[in-house]
């Protein structure tokens, strides 16, 4: 069976109204193959509802979402196309991990042995016959990923997969998702852990109050929102340095305790200008742009805007 080895997720004007709120409001974005896309937003931004609509579990009020051009509910073999990890509690408490996976294999016509293969992939082989209720949150997340990998899908959708994982587990997950994207798969990961996303994602989609705020490569989104680099500089001659920097067309804000905040240049440039002007420096710190600040800038005042 031949199939294209990549598939985009395309979200087109997706909207979900509940009785008293718009959980998702006219949301459009695209998720590209071969990249990890971070789906970011404050709690209650509508991330989970959007993902559940993409996966056909929640019916949109209007709009549509397709994966490789096909709606999830129209796929004859969705498990082979899309793997999803939605919540860490999605198995029967009294059933073993292996049986939980075998049921999915049976329903989708996969051989039972796939259950053991994916358990090995996520490092749960030794607890395959243990009941789900004895699993820690981290083990449940791994089981969720195992279930998502059963059909060797070309698209992966994960809702807050880092929840409940220890730092080692988070590194394991990051390496796994990066490797899967490197194979050409499409990976969409929702999270509110921004630092983690900065290390993991190639692209970001940022939403708040159900609406799209920004979409694009991480570097681009950082550049747009955090603007140019900022530098903190401390000197016994603040007035002289401020004048020098303003001559060089840099923006300078002085604080009463002698600290200058400079934007539009990096630490090397500010240091050089101070040196040539003969100004003594006591501190020179570059503040690199980061996703966290970009995110806070973007979502400021919007989280509670329903």
């Amino acid at each position: 069976m031949s199939r294209p080895n990549y598939a985009e997720i395309s979200v087109d004007r997706l909207t979900k109204h509940y009785a008293r709120m718009r959980a998702v409001d006219d949301l459009s974005f695209t998720v590209h193959a071969g990249r990890v896309t971070g789906f970011l937003g404050p709690n209650g931004a509508g991330k989970t509802t959007a993902l559940r609509m993409i996966l056909g579990l929640v019916t949109p009020t209007s709009g549509a979402a397709t994966i490789g051009g096909v709606r999830y509910v129209d796929m004859p073999d969705p498990i082979r196309q899309v793997g999803a990890v939605l919540e860490a509690s999605g198995a029967h408490r009294g059933r073993s991990a292996r049986n939980h996976l075998r049921i999915i294999c049976r329903a989708s016509g996969l051989p039972d042995q796939r259950a053991d293969e994916v358990l090995a992939l996520v490092g749960l082989s030794t607890v395959a016959t243990r009941k789900f209720k004895s699993f820690s949150l981290g083990m449940r997340q791994r089981l969720g990923i195992a279930a998502a990998m059963l059909g060797d899908p070309r698209v992966l959708i994960l809702d807050e997969p880092a929840n409940g994982l220890d730092p080692e587990g988070i590194r394991w997950m990051r390496d796994l998702l990066r490797a899967l994207a490197a194979e050409g798969r499409t990976v969409l990961v929702s999270s509110h852990l921004l630092g983690e996303m900065q290390q993991l994602a190639d692209d970001v989609v940022i939403i708040a109050a159900g609406r799209l705020l920004r979409q694009g490569p991480v570097a681009e989104v950082l550049g747009e929102t955090a603007g140019t680099a900022r530098v903190r500089v401390r000197t016994p001659q603040p007035d002289q340095l401020a004048a020098t920097l303003r001559d060089a067309r840099l923006e300078v804000v002085a604080t009463p305790d002698g600290l200058l905040r400079v934007s539009g240049a990096d630490a090397a440039r500010v240091g050089h200008l101070a040196f040539t002007a003969g100004v003594e420096l006591h501190e020179l710190t570059g503040e690199s742009a980061d996703l966290e600040r970009a995110f806070l800038d973007l979502t400021a005042g919007k989280a509670g805007a329903r």
Partner: peptide, 18 residues
């Protein structure tokens, strides 16, 4: 009712959207 009681409905309907 088990599917909803034990939250397995998500896995079930992801596997079989019909």
């Amino acid at each position: 009712t088990n599917e909803f009681f034990h939250l397995t409905a998500t896995a079930t309907f992801l596997t079989t959207p019909r």
